[in-house]
Nucleic acid binder design. Structure first.
Lengths: 213, 213
DNA sequence: AAAGTCGGCGAACGGTTGTTTACTGAATGA
DNA sequence: TCATTCAGTAAACAACCGTTCGCCGACTTT
């Protein structure tokens, strides 16, 4: 019995989507704590009061955006971790995947980068929790071969954190490599990619020699 | 003839200081783009119009805060680079210096972390420029022994960037290890320090084996 | 077909915002 | 000493804000 979602609820989801999209667009040039409720409803073409049918306030909408933004990233990370090649090929795949993700969802990445340390507590905490889950997952994926080499759980965790933080760093670097209007400067993008690759290579070099040389 | 700064100009600098301090304090709980001019003048106890005697607008004040915040960090970085010990001792000194700096100027660090990707273009650019200068300086300090080992200028630069970004990362991690009220959770602080040390150790391990095995 | 649900509307509310204006009075310099 | 400079003031401005209210009318359930 798939219910195909009655006309009513479908419409509601539609304007909810529109609100989220409008907010995401406006957040490309400002931060969440300065984004007005009326600004969003105005862009959607809906009365200010309608906002309350979907979100309690702006920080509530912000938390929803966090889940959405990091959800897509989550899928990407899983795919990368499934790669079973050697270090260098894995690095290549990672950097390319991040680059593609940034150029596909720039507003999402910008939102995360901006609000990770932004002025809205609930949103900060949601982002921190989600990134922590990423680190757990990365740690879990890297653990088997490393623990066999005598790595402690703490060491694995710090490596995973380094990887996740570096991924966020790289993503925002890709973001800054594109001018405000949307199109990317190809040379700057290549340079960011080259730097990220070299840094990851250096890290994996350190990992191979960790407490063995 | 040192002029000891006439009474008039001294008073002006004093209220300018007060404006900057008030803004910095208010920015602990919100971001620059949502900070109101009147909020700041109200906290200082001065008429709103007085603000314009010192700054053109809020983003102007923000740029002034950037210079001030990263100025103190700059001095710290210079001191660390002067250390001439081995890797491990240098790492120890670095992490400790960052920790102390964060606990001495938490508001400055929070401001930088928050506005680095924040909603005010001029401030973002000022921070990026200053951090770029940091990376240059680090690169210059590390260059001699590395180029002797066959490192290219690009490789040195990417290592310096990794160090600077990691420093900022560590500083904000220290910041998050303290509850909102100001006092720090000693255990969380120790854990951040331990993670940072291990990550730097891993990086320096990678550096030693860079294109040599 | 009737009764009920509920997403969106329009208007109003008190409050806050950035900015301009003409002003005062103390520090300044001739 | 006297004219000038200028940091800070008080008041007014229109524009905007978040939030509440009752109401409508299309969908949904009985």
């Amino acid at each position: 019995m798939s219910h195909t979602l009655g006309v009513r609820q479908a419409q509601k989801l539609k304007t909810r989507r529109a609100l989220l999209d409008a907010a995401l667009r406006l957040l490309e040039d400002q931060s969440l704590s300065s984004l007005g409720l009326r600004e969003v409803t105005r862009l959607v073409g809906v009365a200010p009061a309608a906002f309350y049918r979907h979100f309690r306030d702006m920080s509530d909408l912000g938390v929803a955006l966090v889940e959405e933004s990091l959800g897509s990233l989550h899928a990407m990370v899983r795919v990368i971790l499934a790669e079973r090649d050697g270090d260098e090929e894995r690095i290549e795949a990672t950097v390319e995947a991040v680059a593609e993700h940034v150029s596909r969802y720039p507003a999402h990445i910008r939102f995360i980068a901006r609000e990770r340390h932004g002025g809205v507590r609930a949103v900060r905490e949601a982002i921190a929790a989600e990134l922590g889950r990423f680190a757990d997952e990365v740690a879990e994926a890297f653990a088997p071969p490393l623990t066999a080499d005598g790595w402690s759980a703490g060491d694995v965790r710090m490596l995973a954190q380094l990887y996740v933080d570096h991924m966020v760093m790289t993503a925002t670097a890709f973001l800054e490599a594109r001018p405000g209007d949307g199109s990317a400067d190809p040379e700057a993008v290549r340079e960011v990619a080259a730097t990220a690759r070299r840094q990851l290579l250096l890290i994996s070099l350190g990992r191979r020699h960790w407490r063995t040389g």
